[in-house]
Design a protein around this nucleic acid. Sequence first.
DNA 1: CATATACATACCGACGGTATGTATATGGGT
DNA 2: ACCCATATACATACCGTCGGTATGTATATG
Lengths: 215, 215
Amino acid sequence: MARNKYPEETHKRILDVSTKLFFEKGYDKTSLQDIVDELGGMTKGAIYHHFRSKEEIFIAVMERMCEESNIAMAKLRDDTSLTGKQKLQKMFSDSLTNPEQKDKFAVTPNLLENPKLLVYYLKMVAYTVVPDYVVPVIKQGVEDGSIETDYPEELADVIMFLTDVWINPTIFKLSAKQLTNRILLINDFMKQFGIELISQEMIDCMVTCSNVTEL
Amino acid sequence: MARNKYPEETHKRILDVSTKLFFEKGYDKTSLQDIVDELGGMTKGAIYHHFRSKEEIFIAVMERMCEESNIAMAKLRDDTSLTGKQKLQKMFSDSLTNPEQKDKFAVTPNLLENPKLLVYYLKMVAYTVVPDYVVPVIKQGVEDGSIETDYPEELADVIMFLTDVWINPTIFKLSAKQLTNRILLINDFMKQFGIELISQEMIDCMVTCSNVTEL
DNA sequence: CATATACATACCGACGGTATGTATATGGGT
DNA sequence: ACCCATATACATACCGTCGGTATGTATATG
């Protein structure tokens, strides 16, 4: 039993199992033995044939997960039929309803108990999503007159920080009421820049869809 | 060589060395052997006599570090000679100039490379500083008329989140210009609630005092 | 002087990672 | 179509280091 015909299947299975465990138990608390056990009848040798380290598995897991949403954001950014403001609103609503990502993060008990994942997420937002997707959209909004600001970079950053981190129930446990209030506060903030990011129906949707702690 | 006369000295030395290493190298990358080596002529037995685990050392390190600033914040909160708004402004300026905390965080290359420390910091802000010190101050501000908001809890949270996390150069690398812009944006935001958190001289002070990356 | 304390020493299983062995799928020559 | 050298896809055995524990021992203390 050596030399499989379809090594890419094995590669994918390792990533699938690792994804599940990293999100369920956290990176630190997932050992390579855990991954081996979950793979069923495969050994550490197989894993280290496909990946050079546990860290490399983690990176591959995260990159595969982000790929899809990044493609979607790039498409939205390059869409020529929408104003900057409309794109920003769509970005926000998409981030709330992206089913695949939500499913994966749903099994994470709390990102604060999964520091490696949290840090990857923060870096991803700050160093990729903001500069590559949000800043261009806001700059477009400034040009087409739908958004008003003297600091497009900083505005992009604070928007993503508030919407992706501060009101993220995967990071901070929030009751439905707390989440609603936070969203209302963000909305007030955004009005300064001519943006109503969130409609009332969206707030209702978020509160019901998100895995908030019930009162 | 057994049974020291002054065990509390040993206890303190372990905390001192651990503090240094946890901030310099990060928690994960600091092994107990590193601590033993840095202690010079002491063994793991000594450490495990004073602490039950590496985790417990970390908690003791962090609690000792936070103790002082928490006492200061409690004093400020219970001061009867200031309005809520004035207290909030002082809290903010104090957090920028607290010398002891700054010294310790200054040696940290980047909190994003020190996930355990970052998470402790986030939890500390969200679950202790905000509810115990900032919310009472804002509620007082609402009562004495110096602050206007319908959501004191959420306002307290977003203020600390923006000022302690978003513009924290220990977490996100920022150039002097980026930091200035972020502060201006926060200031605009705060004006909605009748609060000018930051004066121009404070901005200058922050930018020069903070360990920002120079252009 | 008995005891509790403040350590030192020796040891443990689990961890991430490596070195090496082996069977088979693959591609090139005939 | 067949053979064979080679690269590949693993399995097995092993390594140093990690956090943590069990035990031994000298000394301060009451």
